[in-house]
Design a protein around this nucleic acid. Structure first.
Length: 493
RNA sequence: GGCAUCGUGGCCGAGUGGCUAGGCACAGCUCUGCAAAAGCUUGUACAGCGGUUCGAAUCCGCUCGAUGCCUCCA
């Protein structure tokens, strides 16, 4: 019944550095946590890529029949400016800058985040918790870590004692670091620090009198450290050990390393079975980043209003572009690459719209069943979407051959083919045909039928001046006429 | 400086011991009034040097180059 019983998925686990068979802790159920955005500015395209990679995985898990609880947080407090833990809360800083309330900043950019993801056709996660909504849970975890002796309080702040933790545990196992190396390579801190050691990180930070975002705690008024919220929320909603933790590659160290340390210190258990990391989107060969300004915002791509690209690209095209690369590879954004993807996207969409109009025969020249399994095989191999797309294009060839009358397909196979396209293109890759409303499209096709009719009359009368005029004007409007064996069709570009 | 990762045909991007990835671009052909679209055909690429092997783009070593993390970052 459940597809996952027949489709053995393998995933690359950052923790072990190997591809492993994916076996959830509880059969049929998956708990997945992904580090969400810090909402102090608009999300850029690089942020979107990570979330899109996990959206694709979420979609595939659901398709396979798993019951998935997907938790993606909103970081709305506690994110310090630097790891010396002497910095300022990002949200509070931005609020001061813009002369508005911190929660106003949070609201503004949370709305932007959701709008952007909606345009990219994301599925909403099962739970989208906020850091500020889980202060009590975070305080409880700090208490637990203190009780185990892996943290210390000083002047109203609480720090994680990395050296103490490392005596019995392995701090650095995710990122492949050794504590000794880290100590050897630590730069001298310019600001004097309360921390015992530079590697220690804040669990709770005392709020000075000017700090706006503050909560009472056993150690006085303050706010939680950045790494803590993910531990608190993942534990609360997914349990002390859950299946998948995802996030951007850049969070591997220190953020995810610290999450492991916190959870192990508090609960004596490794929190996550499979760590999955999505790679970076680069621009001009360099990582996109908020702080360096080397980034581009989704709305700039959709509107074409930017210095980088020659034209606007639809969200579905950008999504297709990203899906053409494996999630664990670095992907570079460029106009050439987007243009190539746009054409490929249209080719794929055209084939899909042709699907419904194909004539069927008594035999099939194309083994649809075997092809479908190849699609699954691609996804089962650590979500290899580029291979999946290559398979889809293989089917496009056959679809076009059938359309040309050079191959035939049975009704049964055609149905299977259509279903499989629906599954992989729409359900799994999340790529939508740029749609127009039905009403509009009925009107349009009526008008187009008329124009095509007029043009063909002109062609029949060898009045090519008129026929070419119709064709060229339509091309200028972004409508392409296609003269096939069985008459003329059109498509929107 | 430390720890990683990567370097694939004109561009993007899979693969990873022997078998065509795919997309885009280019060229030829079919179709067409001419185009476009679609189809067919063609390109024999894996940074460099050395080693292992019957055989390496794929494993090992070195060199060069790029990127990421080590500081907030998806």
């Amino acid at each position: 019944m459940h597809l996952y019983k027949n489709q053995q998925l393998r995933v690359y686990n950052s923790l072990t550095g190997k591809k492993e068979d994916f076996e959830p802790i509880n059969e049929g159920h998956i708990g997945m946590y992904v580090c969400g955005p810090t909402v102090y500015s608009n999300v850029h395209l690089g942020n979107c890529r990570t979330f899109m990679s996990f959206d694709m995985m979420f979609r595939y898990f659901k398709h396979l029949g798993y019951k998935v609880r997907y938790v993606r947080n909103i970081t709305d407090a506690g994110h310090l400016e630097n790891d010396a833990d002497e910095g300022e809360d990002k949200i509070a800083k931005k609020a001061k800058l813009e002369q508005i309330e911190p929660m106003e900043v949070v609201q503004r950019y949370t709305v932007d985040f959701h709008n952007t993801l909606r345009q990219f056709n994301f599925l909403p996660p099962s739970i989208e918790p906020t850091a500020t909504g889980h202060i009590i849970e975070q305080i409880e975890i700090i208490k637990g870590i203190l009780a185990k002796g892996f943290a210390y309080e000083i002047n109203g702040s609480v720090y994680f004692d990395v050296q103490e933790f490392n005596k019995e545990h392995d701090y650095g196992k995710l990122s492949g670091r050794k504590l000794e190396d880290m100590i050897a390579n630590t730069r001298e801190l310019t600001a004097q620090s309360e921390k015992k050691n530079p590697q220690d990180f804040a669990l709770w930070k005392k709020a000075d009198e000017h700090h706006i975002m503050r909560w009472p705690s056993p150690w006085g008024d303050g706010f939680p450290g950045w790494h803590l919220e993910c531990t608190a929320m993942s534990t609360k909603y997914l349990g002390e050990t859950f299946d998948i933790h995802g996030g951007g590659m850049d969070l591997k160290f220190p953020h995810h390393e610290c999450e492991i340390a916190q959870a192990e210190a508090c609960c004596d258990k490794s929190p996550v079975k499979y760590w999955l990391h999505a790679n970076m989107l680069t621009l001009n060969g360099k990582k996109m980043s908020k702080s360096t300004g080397n980034n581009v915002y989704p709305h700039e791509i959709f509107s074409g209003n930017n210095d980088l690209l020659s034209k606007a690209y639809a969200p579905a095209v950008v999504r297709f572009f990203m899906m053409q690369a494996h999630y664990s590879s670095i992907l570079d954004l460029s106009d050439d690459a987007l243009q190539a993807s746009e054409k490929g996207y249209h080719r794929l969409m055209d084939a899909i719209s042709v699907l419904g109009k194909l004539d069927t025969g008594t035999t099939s020249d194309f083994d649809v069943q075997a092809w479908q399994q190849k699609c699954y095989n691609a996804m089962n191999d650590d979500f290899n979407t580029p291979i999946l797309i290559a398979q889809l294009f293989d089917a496009v060839k056959h679809i076009n051959q059938v359309k040309e009358g050079k191959e035939s397909i049975t009704q049964q196979d055609l149905d299977l083919l259509s279903d499989t396209f629906q599954i992989f293109v729409h359900d799994v890759l999340g790529i939508e045909h740029v749609a127009q409303s039905n009403e509009d499209s009925n009107t349009l096709s009526g008008v187009m039928d008329l124009l095509i009719d007029l043009r063909n009359q002109a062609r029949a009368n060898k009045d090519f001046e008129t026929s070419d005029k119709i064709r060229d004007e339509l091309t200028n409007l972004g409508i392409q006429l296609k003269d096939g064996k069985d008459g003329t069709t059109f498509s929107l570009k």
